[in-house]
């Protein structure tokens, strides 16, 4: 069954427009737990109380405040906050087109598919043009009172909009000090390179599945059936490698042996 579009908008590419529908491209499969009261196994309730008097406060009576210094806050009225919200709009403005790969991975947050909204002709034309030019568009739009930055890309012939994080959410790697130490030996580098080459493969995410999620669900089913699960205490075992050169040499040797026995 076709999914329902979560939003409708219009992509602006320069002077051209493409009406689109937006669909989530990801679905979260995590196991969700609830917090329960130990004695009656019912979901706990959350309550808001005054830190001064300890009295219970209704959510409607709560105001927001922005901390300016420790212990001092500026109160913000609901109306003031509403005024800051971006203006409602259906426009997805493409501010610029950049080369694919120029936006670092860390910016990407959540992917959406765009589908044509009675705009099949323009939709597939812009997809083909982006693909040909090897570009992605930097998009800005407002959806449900929030402004977003995103990347307009083509994936298998379809348009996608991937939300990007805001600039101050990213800690740049160059804000950190590079680990220092004695220069690495040429031989170690060569061996490490060989090992990576030997382990090189195509990226195939279908090779990995969330086995732990399956086990958690199994545990829940076992317990739901009134059976007792087997609990073995977990003991992590890990030891830092003392001699990196030897460990690399041994890794390469064992990989060669494996490859030899296979062929």
């Amino acid at each position: 069954m076709a999914a329902r579009a979560m939003w409708k908008g219009v992509v602006h590419v320069g002077t051209l427009t493409v009406p689109v529908k937006l669909y989530s491209a990801v679905q979260d499969h995590s196991v969700r737990f609830r917090l329960l009261h130990k004695t009656d196994k019912q979901p706990v309730k959350q309550q808001l109380v005054s830190s001064d008097s300890g009295e219970v406060i209704e959510y409607a009576g709560v105001r927001k405040a922005f901390p300016i210094t420790r212990g001092r806050l500026v109160l913000l009225e609901k109306e003031e906050l509403e005024e800051l919200e971006p203006e409602e709009s259906r426009d997805i403005e493409i501010t610029r087109f950049v080369n694919i790969g120029d936006i670092d991975h860390r910016w990407y947050e959540r992917a959406y598919y765009l589908g044509p909204d009675n705009s099949t002709k323009q939709y597939f034309a812009v997809a083909a043009a982006l693909e040909k030019k090897k570009k992605e568009g930097v998009a800005r739009w407002v959806m449900r009172d929030k402004s977003y930055v995103g990347s307009l890309r083509v994936e298998d012939g379809y348009l996608m909009l991937i939300t990007l994080r805001h600039a101050d959410e990213i800690i740049a790697a160059d804000a950190l000090q590079m680990p220092e130490g004695r220069a690495l030996q040429k031989r170690e580098i060569e061996m490490a390179e060989q090992l990576i080459e030997a382990l090189h493969a195509e990226f195939d995410p279908t090779q990995f599945s969330d086995e732990y999620r399956d086990r958690v669900m199994e545990l829940i089913e076992t317990k739901a059936a009134g059976k007792k699960p087997k609990v073995v205490k977990f003991r992590p075992k890990q030891k830092e490698t003392d001699n990196v050169t030897d460990a690399l040499a041994a890794s390469l040797a064992s990989m060669k042996k494996k490859a030899g026995s296979r062929g």
């Binding site: 917090l35 706990v44 309730k45 959350q46 309550q47 808001l48 109380v49 005054s50 830190s51 001064d52 008097s53 009295e55 406060i57 009576g61 709560v62 105001r63 927001k64 405040a65 922005f66 901390p67 806050l73 109160l75």
Partner: peptide, 14 residues
């Protein structure tokens, strides 16, 4: 932060 009608910070509890 959340501030209550008494202008004191609001705390959450279960």
């Amino acid at each position: 932060k959340m501030i209550g009608p008494d202008e004191a910070p609001v705390q959450r509890r279960y």
